[in-house]
Design a protein around this nucleic acid. Sequence first.
DNA 1: CGTGTAATTGAGGATGATCAACCAAGGTGG
DNA 2: CCACCTTGGTTGATCATCCTCAATTACACG
Lengths: 232, 232
Amino acid sequence: MEQTTGDGEVTACTRCPVGIASGVADRGRCPFVARKRQAGAVLHVAGDAVERVWFIKSGAVLVTRSIDEEHVEGTPWAIRRAGSFLGLEGLVGAGHLESARALTDVTLCGAPLEDVEDWVDARRAASRVLLDAALRSGVRERPLRGNADGTAPQRTAAWLLANASQRSSGTAPRRVMAGLLGMRPETLSRALRTLAAQGAIRPGRRTVEVLDRAQLRSIARKGRAVSRRRAD
Amino acid sequence: MEQTTGDGEVTACTRCPVGIASGVADRGRCPFVARKRQAGAVLHVAGDAVERVWFIKSGAVLVTRSIDEEHVEGTPWAIRRAGSFLGLEGLVGAGHLESARALTDVTLCGAPLEDVEDWVDARRAASRVLLDAALRSGVRERPLRGNADGTAPQRTAAWLLANASQRSSGTAPRRVMAGLLGMRPETLSRALRTLAAQGAIRPGRRTVEVLDRAQLRSIARKGRAVSRRRAD
DNA sequence: CGTGTAATTGAGGATGATCAACCAAGGTGG
DNA sequence: CCACCTTGGTTGATCATCCTCAATTACACG
């Protein structure tokens, strides 16, 4: 029942949700074919075009994302285990959002993106499987993060850049905005003050007006997050 | 084109991705019917059964989750805007994972869960629309959080509880584990030391053995206030 | 015009990042 | 089999940052 959680390793296709959706029990053909990879193997790199969609049958895969485009190996993002897919973003026309590397020896079932598209169109149950996977993975537990992501002004600037494209961003009260950023209202207040002092924004009592996006970007990027390049 | 981003408000069903998938242009019937809600209105509460799936046509909705079950209004989680769905978790058989409250006056299109199920089965394009939405929402930008989530030992304990069910959790090297938790390896090292001092875990060089889950839980739960100044 | 709630400001102290040195383990070549 | 090197994890000390607590101000609303 629960192949999608934990280390619920699935070997037989008749037990695999993908296999079931493909109807392998009734001589259906599953577009996904198994392949093994060793621990440490790089499965794909962020930015690359999605050529294959992978389904993890066993093992664990580390998924990383790069905030800036410079680092090939970004910051750790999540661990995907048996029952998850990799590369689903290809279905919405995007390139790989994340790099993936095998943490353990893994068994993956892969299928070319076009075949997955066809599979979704042909098999009613297929889209359900993918939808399930997408919902479950989107529904991940709270990402517990700390200050390693940057200072309060930096995080605030980044958030504003991402969310203030619509001028009505000010609809979020301070308390809420602070909560979304994982900081206290007092800290947010001070952070906004800092940004205002540099002319990047003009904070109203419950609105924030973005004056200088370039300035915001510069504030968000600079500083502790990645700047200091370790001498190799 | 871009109804799914920003304040791309959609009024006409012939422009709405849901309407298009329902084929309203060809006299198809869309199971979603529009309704307006005022700013501040509570749309649903975490834990409730999912009765209707909502599609946001215009406005912004604040989504909150409660870590502990005590608070009705949890911590702010995300802001959903026009083009997003609410309650998709109902499709995977879960109750509402999050509470939702209108941040602005909103226009929502709602459909009973069963109708959505039927819709997905009947209309090929429907599952694509939902899959798109699920992928996009799961794929959101990095949630920037800070120390308000608790101290390093607390966050570490919570992470271990969520991830160490599989005994092979130790496969994640320290550096990676630290990155997932948004802290520096040094800080993680100290946090593990703290947990070990309380007998909750036994850290190996690149493994972590969980000895006492109850203890971990207690550490994770307990408020940030070690310095209970307030005692009087 | 009072009242209550949310946002701000200020001061202090806990906490995690930083920098640096040290240590453990694995691999390589002599 | 052992010096040597490399890599990753740990420990220690210092400092910037952000949380906490408290007081004050702005604003909505009756």
